[in-house]
Structures are given as C-alpha cells and as structure tokens.
C-alpha cells in the first residue's frame, strides 16, 4: 500500500497541543481513536510506551517515529503530529522533535509495518522534505507534500 493512501487530513494534527513526549503519543492515539482506526486506545498506548522504553524513537533532525505492533488496530495505521515549537523527546541528537509519525500495525502484519517505517525513514532523510514538513501549517499542506515528494 502506498504511504500516501494512509496519510490523509484526518490523521494529521497541526499543531500538537502536548508539550511532553508521552502526551504526544496519547494525543495521536486519541486522534486515531476518533477516526475509528484504533479500537483499543489504552492497549495501543501501552504498546507504544513499552517500545519507547527500549530506545527513544525520537531520532535526529526533529523527526520521531514512535511505532508498535498492537491488537488495538485492525490494519496498518499512521498518524502524524507537528509541533512547530518542538518537544524534548529524548532525541538521539539532543535536539527538539517537531514531527511525530505514529506507525501502528497488528501483530500479524510485520511486512507492511516494516515497509511503512522504512518509507518514512527514507523520506525524512531529505533536509528539504523535513523543512517543508516541519513548517507545514495545515493537514492539507502535509498531504500535498507527500503527494508532491
């Protein structure tokens, strides 16, 4: 499945209201619960937090890719939150994180999960893509960015 088929205006939150990492995860899980993509929000959040304990998913250059396999979703699901101000999320380069891609999949869909995480990782290696992503001001701009890139 193409990444752009998963990223639509309904699963993008700009700006994020939270200022703490765990709250960002909760905010994105809640967003997906409201869209109907998540059936078990508590179980899903627990899975994301459990993965986060192993190693921070806040990478470098303002990008974070929290992810988990969970029975709380029926299919591969993505939410994206943008924090223009940035959030201290224990990033690997010590910088603030601005874009949070929450990528969830059911336990039996490791293949599609791997593909989606890889695609996001590759897309966000581009500095111009990151700049456009982080300076986007609306979900529509984000969707357009993914279509154009």
């Amino acid at each position: 499945m193409a990444l752009i088929d998963l990223i639509n205006e309904k699963v993008v939150k700009i700006p994020l209201e939270s200022t703490m990492k765990e709250d960002v995860f909760r905010e994105l899980v809640d967003l997906l619960y409201k869209t109907g993509d998540i059936t078990e929000p508590d179980e899903t959040l627990d899975a994301v937090l459990a993965r986060e304990l192993l190693l921070s998913t806040a990478l470098e250059n303002g990008i974070a890719i929290p992810h988990a396999k969970t029975k709380g979703v029926a299919a591969l699901t993505i939410a994206l939150g943008i924090s223009p101000a940035g959030i201290d999320a224990d990033s690997q380069d010590g910088k603030l994180s601005h874009a949070f891609f929450l990528i969830l999949a059911p336990p039996d869909q490791s293949g599609p999960h791997l593909e989606a995480i890889s695609e996001i990782a590759l897309a966000t290696r581009s500095s111009s893509f990151r700049r456009l992503l982080i300076t986007s001001r609306s979900p529509e701009e984000i969707v357009e960015l993914f279509q154009d890139s």
Binding site: A2, L3, I4, D5, E119, D148, S149
Partner: peptide
Amino acid sequence: LSRIRSRRDEFLH
C-alpha cells in the same frame, strides 16, 4: 501494483 500517487512511491515499490 498500488496506484502510484507520488514520485516516491514509484521509486520505493
């Protein structure tokens, strides 16, 4: 193949 909707999809698939 999935419907190509961006240049990145075409490259990655």
